[in-house]
Write a protein that binds this DNA or RNA. Structure first.
Length: 565
RNA sequence: UGGGGUGUGGCCAAGCGGUAAGGCAUCGGCCUUUGGAGCCGAGAUUCGUAGGUUCGAAUCCUACCGCCCCAGCCA
């Protein structure tokens, strides 16, 4: 099914929203937000969330904000906010004038904290981090009240103001909510609201030395922005009671509904920011946009389209069940999109020279080739044909196995858009390697067919030797050699499962001449091989292509099945 | 062992008391100037397990089992 013909079904979130609209909750409004922390690059899992939040807003004629959850200055950076904005835009979404930062709310957050202190809902606590851990209790045992818990509002107010004024060293005090140290939900055992931290913030500089915690910041930010449905991932389900508690204590404009869904997991790759950061930092890959990574930047460089990613986000669905989606589905989405849009071109990755002995020595013909059989509107182009050409090494076998439709001694194949050729002679070098094939062509087969109805099973791509342009082609494969490292032996680090051949660089590839004009980001189908994208390293002098995804390959399947026997 | 979630074919996922959608993957077949694309077909007697309610249960009830998350002054 084509991506744009796909009609999304109902999922549990759409069900909730439709019920809310029907009940005229929030005046029938739908307002979502995508709230990344700028501490890393976005990946395909974030894309699922972006498509969900912006998609829902578009679907129900609502709005979606982009908001940076920047409450932890030590980990955050402008490099990340820039990349995040670029990635969201590239995916095709627009937050218009609604770009927000949690740090924009620091003053309001502070005022709300004062309110909580005055109403006895928060207090300044002097317990150290270690003590606080002890006082918190365990999963099965209730916690103990902090000795500071009964501090008067006046005293807490004074202390909190002095925390802001910078009178105390980092860690000396925190502001805590006063809820219930015996709650079975650890998030309700007087969670920390503010901590002292002398760290420069990428937006507020040194204006603050106290920073609010996520759990306190998030519900208020949502409420201030008039969010109706605050969609987040499953691990925040336990935080929802606190989310609601905060909003219930404060004079905020509205009370958004938090809804949790399962984050995306993809086989053969890693999706945690920590692991991705490690791969980048320790140079296991060539940066955040390495085409092997599931980052948006990596997928973009690899050749993925926003359409393919959006289609994928729709296909994987939204549910509460933890799952592992097969990488094959992502690949399918790209093929689906590019099959109808990508120009077909001929590129020989591992060239084998073929001399057509009965073809006139200096003759060059221009043969017409369609640019995309799926879309005649994409037109045709001319391909030069001459006596010496290159075909793919894999397209010739001196001793062909059964079902091998390609070229072998005495056999005939079709050169796509050109002629039938028959292999007459195999030329080898002194060490016995095949150096060239000598073939003869059938002049009646010009264009790739004859009148006699002769069956030619194999069709090869080719390129005229004298006219070919050289290129480097980077063949990418799975990042990991196992679908899910968590399923493997205990105690092994995920890096032990890194696929050693996730990148193979092939040089001296021969491409049809028109490709000399290709520029970075251009995508093509290399006939019979896959979809390729011009890399950002590419230049007119040194063309570089990335393989985004292979074509489905039934011959490879036959061979693999044979091997497994 | 406290709390919160979740269990539908290999992987996702609909289903919400009336007798198992759809997609990916897999396997057949047709077609083909890409072993691509396209087309046709195959596969859960069964919905974690065991009981129960009902004319009827994946859907309701009970018990049990599995898996995930929570003890950051991270998000």
């Amino acid at each position: 099914m084509a991506a744009e013909d796909f009609t999304p079904g109902l999922n549990f979130i759409r069900t909730i929203i439709e019920a809310d609209i029907k009940a005229a909750k929030n005046g029938g409004r739908v307002h979502t937000r995508f709230p990344p922390e700028p501490n890393g690059y976005l990946h395909i899992g974030h894309a699922k969330s972006i498509c969900l939040n912006f998609g829902l807003a578009a679907e129900y004629r609502g709005l979606c904000n982009l908001r940076f959850d920047d409450t932890n200055p030590g980990k955050e950076d402008v490099e990340y906010v820039d990349s995040i904005m670029a990635d969201v835009r590239w995916l095709g979404f627009d937050w218009q004038d609604r770009l927000y930062y949690a740090s924009d709310y620091f003053e309001q957050l502070y005022q709300f904290a004062l309110h909580l202190i005055r109403t006895g809902k928060a207090y300044v606590c002097a317990l150290t981090a270690d003590q606080m851990r002890e006082y918190r209790g365990t999963l099965t045992d209730p916690g103990k009240n902090s000795p500071c818990r009964d501090r008067s509002p006046e005293e807490s107010l004074d202390l909190f103001q002095r925390m802001r004024a910078g009178e105390f060293p980092d860690g000396a005090y925190v502001l805590r909510a006063r809820i219930d140290m015996a709650s079975p939900n650890l998030n309700m055992r007087d969670p920390v609201l503010y901590r002292i931290r002398r760290e420069s913030h990428h937006r507020t500089g040194d204006r603050w030395c106290i920073y609010p915690m996520y759990d306190y910041t998030h519900p208020i930010s949502d409420a201030l922005e008039g969010i109706t449905h605050s969609i987040c991932t499953l691990e925040f389900e336990d935080h929802r009671p606190f989310y609601d508690w905060v909003l219930d204590q404060l004079p905020v404009p509205c009370h958004p509904q938090q809804i949790e869904f399962a984050r995306l997991n993809l086989s053969y790759t890693v999706m945690s920011k920590r692991k991705l950061l490690e791969l980048v930092d320790k140079a296991y890959v060539r940066g955040w946009d390495d085409p092997r990574l599931p980052t948006i930047a990596g997928l973009r460089r690899r050749g993925y389209t926003p359409e393919a990613i959006r289609y994928f986000a729709e296909l994987v669905g939204v549910a509460k069940r933890e799952s592992m989606v097969d990488m094959a589905l992502l690949e399918h989405c790209l093929r689906e999109d590019l099959n109808r849009r990508a120009r077909r071109v001929m590129a020989v990755l591992r060239p084998l020279k073929v001399v057509i002995t009965n073809y006139p020595e200096h003759q060059v013909e221009e043969l017409a080739a369609e640019n995309n059989p799926e879309d005649p509107g994409m037109g045709t182009r001319k391909l030069p044909f001459s006596r010496e050409i290159y075909i793919e090494q894999d397209d010739f076998r001196e001793d062909p196995p059964k079902k091998f439709f390609r070229l072998s001694p005495g056999k005939e194949i079709r050169l796509k858009h050109a002629y039938y050729i028959r292999c007459d002679q195999v030329v080898k070098d002194t060490s016995g390697n095949i150096s060239e094939l000598r073939c003869s062509y059938d002049p009646d087969s010009r264009g790739g067919g004859t009148q006699d109805g002769r069956k030619v099973l194999g069709t090869s791509h080719w390129v005229s030797a004298a006219h070919a342009v050289d290129a480097e082609v980077r063949l990418y494969d799975k990042l990991l050699s196992v679908p899910d490292p968590a399923d493997e032996k205990e105690g092994k680090d995920f890096k032990e499962y890194l696929n050693p051949v996730s990148l193979e660089i092939v040089k001296g590839c021969k491409l049809e001449p028109g490709l000399a004009a290709a520029s970075p980001g251009d995508r093509f189908q290399f006939l019979r091989q896959g979809y390729f994208c011009v890399d950002s390293d590419s230049s007119p002098e040194q063309l570089v292509f990335n393989r985004a995804v292979t074509l489905r390959d039934s011959w490879a399947k036959i061979e693999k099945a044979r091997q497994n026997k």
